[in-house]
Amino acid sequence: MNMLRRLGLAAVLLASTVTGAYAAPLKVALLVPGHANDGSFNQVAREAAEKLATDGEITFELREEMADPSKSEPVIRQYAAMGYDLIIGHGIELSEPILKIAPDFPKVHFAASGGPDLAGRLLGNVDGWTYDFGQQGYLGGFIAGKLGGVSTFGMVGGPELGFVKASHNGFKAGLKEGKPDAKVIEAYTGSFDDAQKAAEVTRGMVAQGAKLVWTSGDGIGNGVAAAASQEGALTIGVTGEAGGFAAKVNIVSVVLDMHPTYKAYVDDIKAGSFGKKFFVSGIGNKGLIMTKVNALGESLPADLDSQVEALIADLASGKKTLPNFFE
C-alpha cells in the first residue's frame, strides 16, 4: 500500500467533509501496554497523539499498562459506551480485546495492532497496523554499512521469534550492501526485558572484536548500551536514554513514527472511509525513521541523511524493493 498517496487522497476527501459530523476534534482513547515515557514503543504512540491534539485534530485520553486483557477489555468497553470516536489499541496485547468488543459498537471506530495475520481479521469498524520488522533492521544495517573503521559487528536480539529474526535478517542484508566482508556475531537473549543478559552478551561480543553492537530489542537496549559504554564499543538501535548511556554510545536508531498512521485514521473517519484497512509502517512511507545522528568516534559519511532520503524515495516509488526477511 502506498500510504503517502492514500493520505493525499484522504486529505482531498476531508476538505469537503469537515463541516459535517466531525467538524470538532475527534475524541480518542489511546491504550498502550506499558509506560508511555519508555522512550520507545509506547512513547511513540503518545507523541503521535499529542501532535494531533496540538494540531486541533483530536482530544485524547491515555491509558497505560493495558497489556492484560482482563484489565483492558472493560476499559475499552467503557470508552466505547461513552461514545468515543476512535479507540486505539497500540500493541499486539490489545488486538484480541478490540476484535472482541468492536462488533458490539458498530458506530465506534477501533484500531488494533498485530502481525501480518491481523489484516484478514479486520471488521468494518476496525483498522489494523503493524510495522515492517525486516525494514527496521535493514535501515539499521544500511547505516552500519556506511560506518568507517568497523569490520566486526555484534547483533543482540530478544526472543528468537519470527518477527525478531526478520529484523536481524534485514540488518544483515543492509550491512552486506555497504560491507560485504563484514564479520557478524549474533545472539538472542530470550527476553525483551532482560538487560543483564543483554549486557553479558554484549561484553562477550566486544571481547570477540565487535566495535559496534546493534540491538533489535527495546528493554534489552539498556543492557547493550551499558555494556558498550563499559567496554569502549558503540551501538546502533538503542532507544530512549538507556539510563544515560545512549548519549555516550548510540550513534543512531531506527524508530517508529506513528503520526502518519494516526493521521490517516482521523482523516478516514472524517471522510467516512474508515475500516478494514491495514497499515504497515515502513521506510518508504516514513513510518520508520532514522533518529538524528550522534557523532561518536567512528566516521559516517557527511551526506548520510541524503543517502537515506534517496533510499526512502526509491522504496516509495518502487525503484528499489526489499526481499521478505521472514524465514
Rank of each mutant, 00 (worst) to 15 (best):
R6E: 14
V12M: 13
L13Y: 02
V18D: 11
G20M: 06
K27E: 14
A29Y: 01
A29H: 02
L30Y: 05
L31M: 07
H35S: 14
D38V: 05
D38W: 04
S40M: 02
F41Y: 15
R46G: 03
E47K: 10
A53H: 05
P69F: 12
E73R: 15
Q78N: 14
Q78P: 00
A81V: 04
Y84F: 15
Y84N: 01
G91M: 06
G91A: 09
E93V: 00
I101H: 01
K107S: 15
A111R: 02
G114C: 09
G114D: 07
L118Q: 06
A119K: 15
A119F: 02
G124D: 15
N125I: 06
N125H: 06
Q135T: 01
Y138T: 06
F142L: 07
G145V: 04
V150G: 00
M155F: 13
G158I: 03
G158R: 01
V164E: 13
K165Y: 00
K165D: 08
A166V: 07
G170I: 02
G178F: 07
A182S: 06
A182V: 10
I185T: 05
D194H: 08
M205E: 14
Q208D: 12
G209S: 13
S216E: 11
G217N: 03
G219W: 00
G219Y: 00
I220M: 03
G223H: 01
A233P: 09
L234E: 05
L234V: 03
T235H: 04
V238L: 04
I251M: 14
M258H: 09
A264R: 03
G275M: 06
K276T: 11
V280H: 04
N285T: 09
K286E: 14
I289Y: 01
N294T: 07
L296T: 06
P301M: 08
P301Y: 00
A302L: 11
D303N: 14
Q307H: 09
D314M: 07
D314L: 00
S317K: 08
S317Q: 08
S317M: 12
K320N: 01
L322M: 10
